[in-house]
Amino acid sequence: MTTQVPGDALVSLKAVNKHYGQLHVLKDINLTVRKGEVVVVIGPSGSGKSTLCRAINRLETIDDGDIKIDGKELPEEGKELAKLRADVGMVFQSFNLFAHKTILENVTLGPIKVKGVAKGEADKDAMALLERVGVGHQAPKLPAQLSGGQQQRVAIARALAMKPKVMLFDEPTSALDPEMINEVLDVMVQLAKEGMTMIVVTHEMGFARKAADRVVFMADGQIVEDATPEEFFTNPKSSRAKDFLSKLLTH
């Protein structure tokens, strides 16, 4: 649990709807995430949680409703959107490190090309970040030479290098071998402790218990429950959440 008091609304979604053809993937979503808050989004696959996460930095467009980041409406595609995305860090399920760039370049590219930071300074900051996530010695290698867990930690460092206001995690451990999940979760728990605002889509209930301020449970494109971790895990209100949790516990 974070000790700091959550501040102003940093991310807010109001009456957001999205369809994929006939499929209504996001149904009237309302969600507010305050500064410093860690919100974990869980739910069965196909419930729309990844779509929700991707909609927040407009990797997915929405049909109606509005999404605000730090009080500003998400702009249309273009320069303004690019600027806003620089403030929203994103970590993907499949890491998506730039395959033709070294680990160090992966982290420095954003600061240098987007923010105009001098190379020397960007290198220094990037090395500090890579050390922080425990892969400093891998800096000159290419992504394909690293394990999945290491790649994902680099991806977190790459997002942090932009000094984002909020970090989005889209199932960051789902593509990892079991023994590598913890090294990534440890970095995320540390980040949460330091007061980063985070929205985490995950199946890792341990992380939700340990680091989340709120758990948002989604099913069939709707937010079914929005509660503290204790409340949600010990006393879920909806039958949908009870059903979901009982399936997890039987394994």
Binding site: K79, M90, F98
Partner: peptide, 9 residues
């Protein structure tokens, strides 16, 4: 997507 998410045009 990764490139766009760090703010590239």
């Amino acid at each position: 997507e990764a490139a766009r998410s760090i703010g590239m045009k």
